[in-house]
Structure formats: structure tokens, C-alpha cells
């Protein structure tokens, strides 16, 4: 048993779970607490990964790479903050999707920076204060600590007075404005914070896989994260943790069927897609969700 958890296979899975926990918790912050269905989350993940990888390849120490990942992903969040104030519901979803695809087009076409479709190989191992994470186990511990910190951070946001206002805004934007809450400011902060957290996941991912290219940060990736959020329950932090864990592990048995790679990948997508549809129809609250998607209508009768 212990041997299994120490194997590279298990450690890889555990590290991926940590990364996806960060992604789903941060996306849940955005979906559950600002009410926007963000279909560009993979872009923030990618921006963080590229920022961290590029600086590491240029020889900067890891803590700078990490901060850069947070900063640039947060900057990406700021870019969709404006549409998130102006648009709502499905229009906002499609606008964030557009943002994600444009970001990916930039990753693919800014060859002088990102090497385009060739990707960035040989991303160095994480090291800070003279300590280098050489083994998978060490990396896992690091990823676990970061994931726990992010989860605590997001839980703290939600439980604080700031989070109380967020819940109020989610329930009734008009009433929140009437009692003096600047709902735009709150939404912008939430979107930027969520994006910045996704950047952290990107940094971990880049240094874990040691190779990144634009094909990782597609709409499919965002959908996978949305699946995790919906499965666990919108606006439930522990739900996102569970959702991410389940969905990282779910397709693993497929490996043992011995299918060709392309078939296995398609089957994986099919499982996620079917799960998403069934969840929406039969269990839209997810496992822990306290609340279904808000009906996006703040323009309704006053």
C-alpha cells in the first residue's frame, strides 16, 4: 500500500490532484461568488505556466517565477474584469471563452517568446533558498502545501466580512447596492483573485511536467475544471476539492484497458461530457452545493 503511494505513478496523480484542487477552488470562487461562468480559466492557468516557465528558463530563482505567475495571471483576470461587469449570463460565458481562445492564439503565435506550437521543454526543477525539489515526493509535498494554503486562503475570503458581502451580492445585486455595496469592486477583486490563484496552479504544472505547449490550455481544460466545480457543488469550497480529486482519478482505470492514446483521450472526454450533462439534469447542486446557478437577472423589476 505504502509502496503504491510512493510510486511515481501515484505521486504524479497526487500532484495533479493538488494542481486541479487549486484550479477548481479558484474557479469556484469566480463562478460561485461573482456569479460569472468563466470559460477562460485555462487561459489564466496557461498564463501562469508560461510566465513561470519563461522566467525559470531565463535563470531567475523560483520565488520570482512564482510571483510572476501570480501577477500575470491576475493581470489576465483584470482583463476579463471589465466584460464581467458589463455582461452577464451566457454572453459573459461566451466572452470569457473568446478571451481564453485569444490568449491561446497568442501562446501559439508569439513564437519569439513562447516558441509557439513547439512548446517550452526543459523547465528547471523548483529550488528556493538553496533547496531543490529533486524527487517527485518532495515536489508533491510542496504542491500539497501550496494547495492547502490556497484552499485556506479562499475559505478565509468566503468566511470573512468581505465574503459576507459576496454572498449578499450573489443573492441580490440590487439589494446589495441599496445598502451601499460597490458590487463592481467586489466582482473585480474576486475575478482577479481567482485568476491569480489559477496562475499558481500554472506555475506548479509547468515545473512538474517540465514541458508546456499551447495544447494544454484549451477550452477542454476549462470544461474539465468547470466539471469539477459543478460536481462538487457551486459555491462549496470542500466540494471543489472533492470534485477535483474524483475527476482526476475517474479516467485512470481507462489506462488499463490498453486503448490507443487517441481513443483513450476521446473516451475520457466522453465520460466528462456525459457526467456534465447528467449532473445538470439530475443533480445541478452537485455534491455539496448549497445553491444552484443564479438566474442572471439584476435588470429585473426593481
Amino acid at each position: 500500500m505504502l509502496e503504491f503511494f510512493a510510486s511515481n505513478y501515484a505521486l504524479n496523480l497526487l500532484i495533479l490532484i493538488c494542481i486541479y484542487v487549486i484550479l477548481s477552488v479558484s474557479l469556484n470562487l469566480i463562478i460561485g461568488y461573482s456569479g460569472m461562468l468563466n470559460l477562460g480559466h485555462a487561459a489564466f492557468f496557461g498564463i501562469g505556466a508560461y510566465a513561470s516557465a519563461l522566467l525559470a528558463l531565463a535563470g531567475y530563482p523560483y520565488w520570482i517565477c512564482f510571483i510572476a505567475a501570480v501577477f500575470f495571471a491576475g493581470l489576465g483576470g483584470a482583463m476579463i474584469a471589465y466584460p464581467s461587469l458589463k455582461l452577464r449570463g451566457d454572453y459573459l460565458a461566451i466572452a470569457t471563452l473568446g478571451f481564453g481562445e485569444i490568449a491561446r492564439a497568442v501562446m501559439k503565435n508569439w513564437v519569439s517568446l513562447t516558441r509557439g506550437p513547439l512548446g517550452l521543454p526543459g523547465i528547471p526543477k523548483i529550488s528556493f533558498f538553496g533547496l531543490t525539489l529533486t524527487t517527485k515526493f518532495q515536489f508533491f509535498i510542496f504542491a500539497l502545501i501550496i494547495a492547502i494554503l490556497v484552499v485556506l486562503f479562499v475559505s478565509k475570503i468566503v468566511k470573512s466580512p468581505f465574503g459576507r458581502v459576496l454572498r449578499a451580492i450573489r443573492e441580490d445585486e440590487i439589494a446589495a447596492q441599496a445598502i451601499g455595496k460597490n458590487i463592481k469592486k467586489y466582482k473585480v477583486i474576486v475575478v482577479i483573485t481567482g485568476a491569480a490563484c489559477a496562475g499558481i496552479a500554472g506555475s506548479l504544472f509547468a515545473h512538474h511536467i517540465t514541458f508546456i505547449d499551447p495544447t494544454t490550455f484549451t477550452l477542454m481544460e476549462t470544461i474539465l475544471i468547470v466539471c469539477m466545480v459543478v460536481l462538487g457543488g457551486v459555491a462549496s469550497i470542500r466540494g471543489s476539492v472533492i470534485g477535483a480529486t474524483i475527476l482526476v482519478l475517474l479516467p485512470e482505470p481507462l489506462r488499463f484497458l490498453g486503448l490507443p492514446t487517441s481513443m483513450a483521450a476521446a473516451l475520457r472526454v466522453m465520460i466528462y461530457a456525459a457526467l456534465l450533462i447528467l449532473l445538470m439534469i439530475y443533480k445541478p447542486n452537485g455534491i455539496f452545493g448549497e445553491w444552484r446557478f443564479r438566474h442572471a437577472k439584476s435588470k429585473e423589476a426593481l
Binding site: 478565509k156 475570503i157 470573512s160 466580512p161 468581505f162 465574503g163 459576507r164 458581502v165 454572498r167 449578499a168 443573492e171 441580490d172 440590487i174 439589494a175 446589495a176 441599496a178 445598502i179 451601499g180 455595496k181 477583486i189 448549497e290 445553491w291
Partner: peptide, 27 residues
């Protein structure tokens, strides 16, 4: 227009002046 899924007390507190609703201060 209330916040129906929040408690009566929370509803009241939300209406009050509270500098700690600032993101950094609240963290």
C-alpha cells in the same frame, strides 16, 4: 428584497458601516 438565504442578523450587519469589508482588512 432581502438576502433570503442569510440570517436575520447577517442581513442587519450587512447594512452597517464596516471598514473590514475591505478585502485586505478582512483577510
Amino acid at each position: 428584497r432581502l438576502f433570503p438565504k442569510m440570517t436575520v442578523l447577517e442581513n442587519m450587519m450587512l447594512s452597517m458601516q464596516n471598514v473590514y469589508e475591505n478585502f485586505w482588512l478582512s483577510m
